[in-house]
Write a protein that binds this DNA or RNA. Structure first.
Lengths: 123, 123
DNA sequence: AGAGGTACTTACCAAAAGGTAAGTACCTGA
DNA sequence: TCAGGTACTTACCTTTTGGTAAGTACCTCT
């Protein structure tokens, strides 16, 4: 009855890697966590302008299932939960670096804009 | 009136790269073209078990628009069209290599299966 | 007292992505 | 003559993905 799969079968390695990275915000979450080391839920939400809370936890849960992020719950009130990258999350991020450079080159080529906060924020 | 966009705005390079690679078969098309240098439409279809003709051309057209593949039409009967990677397609493929290796490692870790022809083929 | 913050969860809805199956026009080989 | 190949195109439908908005429970600050 799980709605998540992400366990193949796969055609090749790229196929398997894309499966865990595809999702509107996943690569951004990866970057955000790599950049800050560890982040709370609300910090991530603020760091990803435009993300909905629903998608944010959905993605975080899937990435936890896939062994990319670690979720540390502090049993206090108000609630505190910290997210960080696991070993596999870190290596995935490293593997994404060349792709990021290629993308930066493409942005230059086509003259695409960067997302600005006023574009991303819904209010 | 074009239904395709893929022109940003983007949060970062990975975002921009993912935009042109996301699509069920795109990375596979990239690999297939890199592997064989140049392929005809029907050769690609046979090389990607399970792909529908609709998605195959849709993806090929988008990748052509994005400057990743070159489409060479030979005005003969029966029709002959050859697809190959452009300079940018080749460099994208190179940038995907580390991701492919990471994915191969993940397949090993979770013990995922490779797609077999009987799984992929619809008839 | 009331606004706003913590981290979610849930129901409902819209848009995007992808699949099926048929049609087109012309050719080759059995 | 008739199946099967070439490279598509089109209409229709299902599945997947993502967004909205509300609710939960408890806290701090003004």
């Amino acid at each position: 009855m799980t709605k998540s799969a992400r366990r193949g079968p796969y055609f090749c390695g790229i196929d398997a890697a894309m499966d865990v990275v595809s999702g509107k915000w996943k690569s951004l979450i990866l970057w955000e966590l790599h950049d800050h080391g560890t982040r709370r839920f609300a910090e991530l939400r603020r760091g990803l302008p435009g993300v909905s809370e629903k998608m944010l936890i959905q993605h975080l849960r899937e990435m936890e299932e896939d062994g990319l992020v670690h979720r540390e719950v502090y049993r206090e009130v108000p609630p505190k939960v910290e997210y960080s990258l696991t070993e596999h999350g870190l290596s995935l991020n490293a593997a994404l670096a060349p792709l990021g450079e290629w993308g930066t080159g493409r942005i230059r080529r086509i003259g695409a804009e960067k997302v600005s906060f006023d574009v991303a924020a819904t209010s």
